[in-house]
Amino acid sequence: MQPEKPIVIRKEVVRRGSADEFLKGLWRENPVFVQVLGMCPVLAVTNSAINALTMGLATAFVLLLSNLLVSCLRHYIPPQVRIATFILIIATFVTVVDYLIQAISLEIHKSLGAFISLIVVNCLILGRAEAFASRNSIGRSLLDALGMGAGFTFALLCMGGVREILGGGTLFGVALFADNYQPWVVMILPSGGFFTLGAWLLLFNRIKQRQQRKQPRLQARLQEMGSEQ
């Protein structure tokens, strides 16, 4: 046996910069394409870009406010009742959003239907409250919510855009093709949501794999450069 060498594990620095706190939700830890959270709205209301955008913004809004409130109250909420309290807070903001959307446009409210109320059970929001906002400062929680909300909206738009273009030949209601474009009705139907999500996940995993393959080479290059200096 060789003499035991002390193994040095380099601890990854957990503290991140503010920009990184925001960007992680948008890309590296994207709630939909990486964490695969909140599938109910992702599949159900992304049949047009405008629905996807509204849903994304509504969720982001609820996420932002609930993260803010949870972070503010984090010292006053005992762990035994934290889930109940978080849900209460989230449900409040969902109700608020529901009223606001009704006040802005009944049309959008009608097309989103029950899914606004279902933001309550979007595990993304409870997840962020539990895993992040209840343990971090107000500023960081807000940044986290902004990033995750933006990432969620971005993902929903990716879904809604593809589905509306293929399923209706329009984007945000603007016709993109000639009059006799044949819409792929299936894309607007629920099954189209699964097809589109599958395709996007395929693409994202492909990109991730590529990056991971590049990673060792990149680190080797960096080390070389370091030793040269």
Binding site: Y76, P78, Q80, T85
Partner: peptide, 8 residues
Amino acid sequence: VYRALVGV
């Protein structure tokens, strides 16, 4: 606990 629940 009561403070948290009632307050929130």
